[in-house]
Nucleic acid binder design. Structure first.
Lengths: 249, 249
DNA sequence: GCCGAAGAATGATCTGGCTCAATGACGTAA
DNA sequence: TTACGTCATTGAGCCAGATCATTCTTCGGC
């Protein structure tokens, strides 16, 4: 479900603060003209994070919204006894704060060196009520996230372990392609095996074993511990969609 | 996470078509004044469904949006080999079409006699661009659904069978309370055990067994096959949140 | 280059929930 | 009322993935 741009980018004058923004083409401000863009930027504050630093915790008052410009983050919820479900990963261009509640419903933590911009919710709300275009983008974004969430429910509710991992890899491959704007066969895994397990509703051991399984089927190859090469994309797709006659192999 | 109204209802004149609308206080049009409401209503078409009739199928071109006024529906996705995941149930007041895609991503089917209103997407889009208030409501709705989806991911990824069923029942109890506007201890199950199973990522047999388990713990009672009475709400909550020392019992 | 610690992979065993099978309860039609 | 079909419950055994234990890699720091 690629995130199709609907507005073309206004060219920016030399020296505009957003001129070299890496995520402008793919985020909510992409439709704005130069002065509006500068206005929005002036409302925001840049923040850098080291791996394992958190942006906020589940239950904190939801006073800010965020836009990711570099790096990668994980979103997770804990149960009383420590079981953890990662509900999503965020990458450059993603917007964090599609929510209406008083408190954050999850914790957000950096996976690697990460840069993001935050806005106070009040300032941001004021800004968007003056810019219906941005409101529309936000709605689009929420709808997109909802579709992703639904796919993840299918994965968690009904897919077998190997299918889950295959689906996850295809999602990362798509994202890599969207980010680079061209076809890709490789992508990085900025998260640990435990994080993958907590995202897919498995254990780290099962993730390792299924990784070995996909490798033995020649669907993927590991270029390094944290870098995957897809050798057979359609095969991986069939596996992900439960069309692979798994039991036959 | 109750859906807190943010706008008070404009009183309607006698004979207004929306005067006796059962869902006006809880849906996207609640903030509208009498003429605007009448305008929106004139864009919509009422449709009645019998149990098992579908509204649309996964993959159909997404040309309409819907508002539920009576009854209950299920939303589901199928995998290639017939595995099914129900991604949600819809009840009066719910809005269907929080999406941006060209095709519906799931199938929607009535669980009982159901009444809904549909709008062509173009007409609806035109209407909302003239009514930012509605756009805001839609965004709220999407954010609310996203929060629900995240909770469901935790359920599917990390909760044990009994915890899933307890969570599900608490959700239905909350909904019954929101619908009636007062505290409740009972609610109906308009869906079959198979539907519950396909929503919770279990089998119908496990649903039956966990139902028996919750009953044996005196957390619930069945007033009828499809009607649940909650006997111990905080106990049920603890079970749902994984705080119940299950293994001790 | 060597060392140590953390992360990842692999092996052995266990178990919660699934599968397959049978029985029970309910609602509807004659 | 009885009979039947559907849905729900209960039982027995099994298996995918969890858990527990061990070994292997990787990589940063010296």
């Amino acid at each position: 479900m690629p995130y199709v741009p609907t507005a073309s980018l206004t060219p920016l004058p030399e020296g505009h603060p957003c001129a070299d923004c890496p995520v402008r083409p793919i985020t909510i401000c992409r439709g704005l003209d130069a002065p509006t863009l500068a206005g929005m930027r002036s409302l925001g504050t840049m923040q850098r994070l080291k791996p394992e630093q958190s942006v906020f915790h589940e239950g904190d008052p939801a006073r800010r919204v965020f836009m990711v410009t570099h790096g990668a983050l994980k979103l997770y919820t804990l149960l009383a006894d420590g079981r953890r479900q990662i509900t999503g990963f965020m990458f450059p261009g993603d917007f964090l704060g599609v929510s209406i509640d008083e408190e954050y419903a999850f914790t957000v933590e950096a996976l690697e060196d990460t840069e993001l911009w935050w806005f106070s919710r009040e300032a941001f709300d004021r800004f968007i009520s003056d810019h219906p275009q941005v409101e529309r983008e936000l709605y689009r974004l929420a709808a997109h996230e909802l579709a992703e969430a639904q796919r993840q429910m299918v994965l968690l509710g009904r897919k077998a372990a190997a299918e889950r991992l295959a689906s996850f890899f295809l999602g990362l491959l798509d994202r890599a392609e969207r980010a680079s704007g061209k076809a890709e066969t490789c992508f990085d895994l900025p998260m640990s095996r435990i994080d993958i397990a907590d995202y897919l509703g498995l254990t780290k051991e099962t993730v390792s074993r299924m990784l070995a399984h996909l490798r033995s089927l020649r669907l993927i190859r590991l270029q390094a511990q944290n870098r995957v090469e897809v050798l057979n994309r359609s095969g991986l797709s069939e596996m992900a969609d439960g069309m692979s006659a798994d039991h036959i192999n």
